[in-house]
Computed example of a mutant assay.
Amino acid sequence: MSNVSIIDLSKNEEKLERFLFKHLSFKNILDCKIRTFLNSFAFIFLIATYFLMSCNILFPTSMFTEISPLIPLTITFLLLFINSWVSYTYIRKKYSDYNIKYDLLVNYTSFIQTFRTEQLRIKISRFRISPSNIEDYIEYYESQWNEKIQRKWTKIGIITILLLPIWTEYVSKNIGNFFDQKFLLVIILAITIAIIIILFRSLIETVFFIEVNKKKKTADILKMLKRSFHTVL
């Protein structure tokens, strides 16, 4: 890094990340309050699905009990779909200048990255970033990300190794016993677990990787900004 010292990069780091991920946070960009309402109810119905399924396993009584988890599970999927469509309609209307494609999972990663890059380009003077030193910033953030991601995955790997035997023992004792008897329940269980895994992955990223991912996202935004510099030049 020849143009910017490590000290200057470090000083500018907090200021740049505050702008990109607090001022231009996902919540602020997609300020659609109905999303929180729909997500909350979807989570409640997902819990209801798990509760009814557990009751069916512990207290098997009738065919109605066996199919009852399908009702809240269907409502959960319906609410998630409505949420994704409402979010798409809102964001497409609010940011009509951007080419926004429908995202079922409501991530809109490409749009948000493009939007943040454009906002950074408009206010670039605040952060002392220029065509002559932007490569230094990119290298700094990529090195920060590589270093931190290795530490995080090492910790998660250790936790996974410790918990895997417990999970395997639970599955062998509980799931295998009723697989042949209640095929419908197994399907519902598989769908519910899939949703829980998606939510768990999101939780893991939020708890363990939110600060780490900021480094990677910042580097990617700076790369897009660098290409825009070349286009202008």
Rank of each mutant, 00 (worst) to 15 (best):
T114W: 03
Y90A: 12
L120W: 12
I82Q: 08
W85S: 06
R116G: 07
T89S: 14
I82M: 11
F115N: 11
K123P: 00
L104S: 10
S110A: 09
L104P: 03
Y98A: 11
S87E: 15
I100G: 01
T89V: 12
E118F: 11
S96K: 13
S87F: 01
I112H: 02
N83H: 11
T109G: 08
S84V: 09
I91W: 08
K123N: 15
Q113L: 12
Y88C: 01
N107T: 04
K94E: 14
N83C: 13
W85Q: 07
K93D: 10
L104I: 05
T89K: 15
S87C: 10
W85D: 02
W85R: 06
R128I: 01
K93I: 09
Q113C: 04
N99V: 00
V86K: 12
Q113V: 13
D103Y: 04
I112E: 08
K94D: 10
F127M: 03
E118P: 00
R116N: 06
E118I: 13
Q119F: 01
I124E: 02
L104W: 13
F115C: 09
R116C: 08
K93V: 08
Q119K: 15
F81N: 02
Y90S: 09
V106L: 00
V106K: 06
F115M: 10
V86A: 05
D103G: 04
T89F: 08
T109L: 07
I122R: 13
R121S: 13
N99Q: 11
T109Q: 12
Y108Q: 01
V106Q: 14
Y102T: 04
N83T: 08
Y95N: 04
